[in-house]
Design a protein around this nucleic acid. Sequence first.
DNA 1: GTCGGAACAT
DNA 2: ATGTTCCGAC
Length: 491
Amino acid sequence: MKAGCSIVDKPEGGGGYHFPEWAYKTESSPGSRQIQLWHFILELLQKEEFRHVIAWQQGEYGEFVIKDPDEVARLWGRRKCKPQMNYDKLSRALRYYYNKRILHKTKGKRFTYKFNFNKLVMPNYPFINIRPNGVVPQSAPPVPTASSRFHFPPLEPHSPTEEGPGRFAAASLLPPHAEPALPDPERKAEPAELEESAADWRRELLAPPHAAAAAAGPKRKPEVVLPLFSRPGMFPEHPHSPFAVSPLPGRPGVLNVPISPALSLTPTLFSYSPSPGLSPFAAAGSSCFSFNPEEMKHYLHSQACSVFNYHLSPRTFPRYPLVVPPLQCPVPLEEQPQFPIKLQPPPAGRKNRERLESPEGGTNSGNSKPEPPRVKVEPAPDKEEEEAEKREEEEEEEEEEKAAVFARPAAPAWAPVPAQPGSSGEENVEKQARDCPGDAAAQERREDALMPPKLRLKRRWNGDSRQEMPEEPRPNGIWHLPKAVAAASDT
DNA sequence: GTCGGAACAT
DNA sequence: ATGTTCCGAC
């Protein structure tokens, strides 16, 4: 049944440029990560059309309620070409997000979940406002309103030669009036429909039944609607696609890496999130609303282009901290480290400090002893800290987070960065992103601390090592015994 | 309903 | 890695 489910091939890597695999894993790329559920949820949440299916919970930050589980499941199933999808399965996927701290359940409220916006989206969706009745219908976390008024400076477009279908056409940003009707829940996906490219799924989702039916015939060109954030002249060459121009400077036809502010919703990427020190919202955890206007400006700019792409790959942005569409991009892409993160020395966090005997502990290529057991033998976690974290979490979950999500105390090990005259904001931000991975790492450990040891183990075994597990030469496959390990740790 | 383990798929 | 599918337990 998958035959019909077309996916957009990943861009051909011409020009000899090689991008890391993850870079291709945009929403529509083949493979396991076409689109992530949380992402999809966010999209639905964003659209007025689906208000009756899923909607933000008024008054609860990041909380949403699935009003029609079956329909959501159906939409998800259609999106993923899983006709057998149902709420039971979908919710299972949702539950996996608990551990990742992307979501959690709102206890006692059926079909109600809550995004962990404070830690996740907040710093990455600076442009989304909660405007339940606004044009951006279903909103998102309440962020400083500056975001909504921000406008993009002209970007330097490169000429994308092969855009493929406008797979990320701005349909998700359609104004509510565009497609008011819900698709007929009964309507089955017909082959022709399934043949549609990823670009069409939105249209399909959004389209009223008759329109969708029409789509089954000769493919009519989707009416591309300008996104909210799009402005005339923004991308003169491709006025109707906000994604026509890659934020990545000058890489025509190679890869229009979608830059996404959504980014680090996966644990793996947490550490790469814009550091709190870099983001005005950074603070995600703490004094979120007191930010330096300059920083704000720079930050907004650096993320500007990501914004209308925010529903693209959540993986892109954080790893390309240096290639954000620049006011001025001093470092040519090819000179930038492809995997800047991996080059970063382990943060000097508490745990790492313990084991960091040598100051240069970052690269241990010469080390003959990888000492893998260290990871397996999870020492009893720091009780106090864990307790504290647990308390914090309980507070959050059980007290319905009456403590504002933003009020979370985060003791950053970094210092606020003075605006550097002479260097662009991006530069600043980016540099910090490079130089100060520690804070993110610290947060990582906090997150880990929040987690039961078993889960922590799991995360690590799942490759979610991050700073906890420095890049070490590991014997092939030997460590890949997650279940065994989990079991072992259980007994 | 909700949860999470397990096996499996992509 | 991120689900999907199934399922027993609560």
